[in-house]
Amino acid sequence: MSVSDPPNQGLRAWLLTDAPSSRRHARLAAWYQGWLSFRANPMTMIGFAILLFLVFIAAFAPWLAPHDPFAQDLAARLQPPGSENYILGSDGLGRDILSRLMYGSRITLYIVTLVVIIAPVAGLLVGTVAGYAGGWADVVLMRITDIFLAFPRLVLALAFVAALGAGIENAVLAISLTAWPPYARIARAETLTFRNSDFIHAVRLQGAGALRIITRHIWPLCVSSLVVRVTLDMAGIILAAAGLGFLGLGAQPPTPEWGAMISEGRRFILDHWWVATMPGLAIFTVSLAFNLLGDGLRDVLDPKEGSN
């Protein structure tokens, strides 16, 4: 973004104008200004960069990984980090930890993506319907939400996984089942503030039905607060998935899931620290990145709750 670049300068001015010429223009300008304040925070950018890097690694894992993540080499088991061929060392079966971490990033992203699609949408549905319908529907839906909230999250997830059987998909379901209630609450609170506002009345007078009002007019208004909450929750989702994997209820061996890798490394922890340490560092880095990003997003999307 050099200042001397004229076309760029023109685009910048166009994006930062006070008087947008069209709806699309206004929307793009808003996005750009959000991006500017987003970019101004170095911590957020660090988080963003880490996540881009993660996506890059996950996408190109087969080309980047120096070894096959499943290839065992018992002659070269428990090699320390920095040894020849094994930059981050090898695990108890002689598999390259770096390659396993790279493939593991795919699983982490897969779990996070699925949960992030399922849980907020379920919460949005329940919350907006409860908030808009009011009356007994509100009471029933919110009681159900409260019940789910009163459960210890990991125990509930454990119970679901135990009932459904271990595996990545079931772990995703279990985490989603424990993750939706807060979204429902947020969506309901937002809906309650809008439902009696003038523009909703206006739409209703124009003959719009409840379905149209909820999907076209209430959902878009709930999205920004949900997005912030989701980004802040992603770290929790990663930790929960890793926890399930650690307990042997998430991804099954030999899948290189990070939590399961820690659990495998736990046996060697006293003599071969790196086997459990490396995947832990990976989990930590990624969830830290999501937290940094979420903090920044909150400042951009939700100025009233921002920390500055």
């Binding site: 890793a242 650690f246 820690i262 006293l270 340490t277 995947p279 930590f284 830290l288 937290n291 903090d295």
Partner: peptide
């Protein structure tokens, strides 16, 4: 606080055991 939020607590526990106890 951010580090506290982001840390997989079971992993930190393992490392703590390794270093402080082991």
């Amino acid at each position: 606080a951010l580090i506290g939020y982001s840390m997989p607590i079971f992993w930190l526990g393992l490392i703590g055991l390794l270093v402080l106890y082991g």
